[in-house]
Nucleic acid binder design. Structure first.
Lengths: 144, 144
DNA sequence: TTTAATGCAAAGTGTTTGCACTATA
DNA sequence: TATAGTGCAAACACTTTGCATTAAA
């Protein structure tokens, strides 16, 4: 178990939850996936280990509530991705209206500018922004 | 019927759909609401006119597909709002994690900057961006 | 008069929950 | 050993669909 993994384990325990085998397996899946997954997709990866769909949902809700995971909504469905120790703390999603793929937009420069804009809004609107979900919609390189 | 209303009527007809009483009533509701509504909320406003929930969904899907309405997802639910002739073509939503309200962030300056960033991404990633869903998450003025 | 659209109820899909049982701290 | 967590199935909530009927062009 590496450092990051251990510190997430510790966070779970600090919050008063038990670090079960199921949580470990799901967490491993999230680490190796590095992309947003639906509950069903996670389920299909771990169901051979006798983990039920309900456990996936319960775990993702727990992980989301303590900040381990980020939940994004698209097409009336939830996608989950690792938020903690992510290489891309804020990232922008792009959804193609033709092929329906959801891809990550990696562009460090742009992300920093987005974060700056959030700070502008925070100040002018007296909000406290913890997170941002940005979903761009249009046609991808292949479909346009 | 004002100009904007008429041109939406025309758009619907041009696309080969019929401008029914139900579509007119729902459209009127969207115009007067000026904020995102769920299908149920629209339904509760028009059910006394003998319009079924299924019609709301079918109409919203149609309106979304031809660009009259914008659909935003939050908490696994769909909200709909007028996109055409909206005073705020791109706007940013903010969701408070405490009171669960979803509010609009109106700040013209910031919105223009967001649009510029989209253009940057379009060029560097070879995408064609039609729309952007931006949902900021945190604590609102009252809850923080 | 053709064809899209409607209301209703049934079906579908993603998610949550109740419960008896299990496993962690 | 106390309590959080689990798998399963049933329940839920939002959305879509099949069908006979209606109404718009």
């Amino acid at each position: 178990m590496n450092k990051e993994f251990l510190s997430i384990k510790k966070l779970i325990e600090t919050k008063g939850y038990k670090f079960t085998i199921q949580k470990r397996i799901i967490l491993e899946e999230l680490f190796s996936a590095d992309i947003h997954l639906t509950a069903k997709e996670i389920y299909s990866k771990v169901k051979n280990k006798n983990i039920g769909l309900a456990t996936i949902y319960r775990t993702m809700n727990l992980f989301t509530s303590i900040g381990i995971v980020k939940e994004i909504h698209a097409d009336g469905m939830s996608y989950y991705e690792l938020k903690m120790y992510s290489k891309k703390p804020l990232h922008i999603h792009f959804k193609c209206i033709k092929c329906n793929r959801i891809i990550d937009v990696d562009n460090t420069g742009v992300e920093i500018k987005y974060l700056k804009l959030n700070r502008e809004i925070e100040e002018s609107k007296k909000l406290q922004i913890h997170d941002a979900n940005i979903m761009l919609i249009g046609l991808c390189d292949k479909c346009k």
